[in-house]
Amino acid sequence: MKKSQLIRTLGLVVFIISSSVLAHGITQSQVEQAIATAEKLLIQSAQVDHQWSTAEPLIKQAKKALQLKQYENAYSFAQKASQQSTLALKQADTEQANWALNLPK
C-alpha cells in the first residue's frame, strides 16, 4: 500500500469514528454524568418510598452499554431512568396533597 493511500485510509477511519461520536454529540463523560444523575434521582425517589421498579434496570442497562462503549444507547437508557425517577418524585409530591381522595366515602 502506498503511503498516500495509507494516510487516506487512516483519515477515513478517524473520520468515521469521530463523526459517529460528534454526529450524536454523546461522549463518555456525558454518559457518566447522565448515569450519575439517574442514580441520584433513584435515591431521592427511594428516600420518599416512591421508587419505581422500572428505573434501576434501566440504569443497569446504561452501565452495560457504557462498558461496551455504546454511548448513544447508554445515554438513552440513563435518560429514561432519570425520567422514570422524575415521574416517581412527581407522583410522591402530587400524592402528598391527593392521597386523601382515595378514602372511602
Partner: peptide
Amino acid sequence: KQFFYTKHGQLNFSCANCHVQ
C-alpha cells in the same frame, strides 16, 4: 393510613385502589 391510600409505582395504584374501590 397515608401509605395505604397513596398511589405508588409506574402503574400509579394505591393499595386502596385495588382493595377498597
